[in-house]
């Protein structure tokens, strides 16, 4: 597919302006930051609550904004002409995803700074965060494909938020109900495990977590690509 930096840049700039001038979407950025601030005030946290703002960022910022950028194009009836324009599908997706990626990095950075969180293994943690971002971008794309307005997208994102952001909380009951152990394979739970393992210094477990996250990311991207192709040929 032909990719042009100039077109990607144009889409990036356009989406950035549309994003920050649409307060319904841009104020969403404050949510995880506010949560991180409150948590930091409480002081002395376990990993579970430390990762809460981070996992919430992925659902509420990464996936939500990504889905809104696509749903918004449909809401304003601009998607059809965008697909007919010289911009290729790759241009469009890269332009949008890179904007969301950048926003995610900034918000995550701010959250971690407020929480005063220092990963035990910076390399492993940053690659884990990047892999998670890619996975949530794919989730956002899928939600965006099946919703027609920003309003619908904000409802569509709820399942992602409940399953992936709040999933790790279920593990607290895993002692009583062993079946809940499956939740530890969620990407959000793996992030917490990864931090535990790297603090303990067990490299093999750290690598295992990274592999699980990579699988999630790859599966997410592949499914979203298939659905994208299917949706585009339907419409």
């Amino acid at each position: 597919m032909n990719v042009s930096i100039k077109r990607i840049q144009a889409i990036f700039v356009k989406d950035y302006k549309e994003f920050y001038r649409n307060y319904a979407i841009s104020t969403m950025v404050l949510m995880p930051l506010a949560l991180a601030f409150i948590y930091s005030m409480m002081g002395d946290m376990d990993l579970q609550s430390l990762f809460m703002p981070i996992n919430l960022t992925f659902a509420m910022i990464t996936a939500f904004i990504q889905s809104c950028l696509i749903a918004e194009e449909k809401e304003h009836n601009t998607l059809r002409s965008l697909l007919l324009s010289p911009a290729s599908i790759a241009d469009i997706l890269i332009g949008k995803s890179s904007l969301v990626f950048l926003i995610t990095v900034i918000v995550l950075g701010l959250c971690m700074w407020m929480l005063d969180f220092r990963p035990s293994n910076l390399m492993a943690m940053s690659s884990a965060l990047v892999l998670s971002t890619v996975f949530y971008l794919a989730m956002g794309l899928i939600v965006g494909l099946y919703t027609k307005t920003v309003m619908e997208a904000s409802v569509g994102i709820l399942p992602v938020m409940i399953v992936f952001s709040f999933g790790p909380l279920v593990l607290l009951f895993a002692d009583r109900y062993p079946i809940l152990e499956v939740f530890q394979w969620l990407p959000s739970a793996q992030l917490i495990l990864l931090e535990q393992h790297s603090a303990a210094g067990t490299t093999s477990d750290v690598i295992m977590s990274l592999v699980v996250l990579a699988v999630w990311a790859v599966v997410g991207v592949v499914i979203s690509a298939i659905l994208f192709k299917k949706r585009m040929s339907d419409e």
Partner: peptide
Amino acid sequence: YVHQVRDGHYPHL
């Protein structure tokens, strides 16, 4: 390139 009446625009630009 097909331009339709119902094609929209980006309101915030």
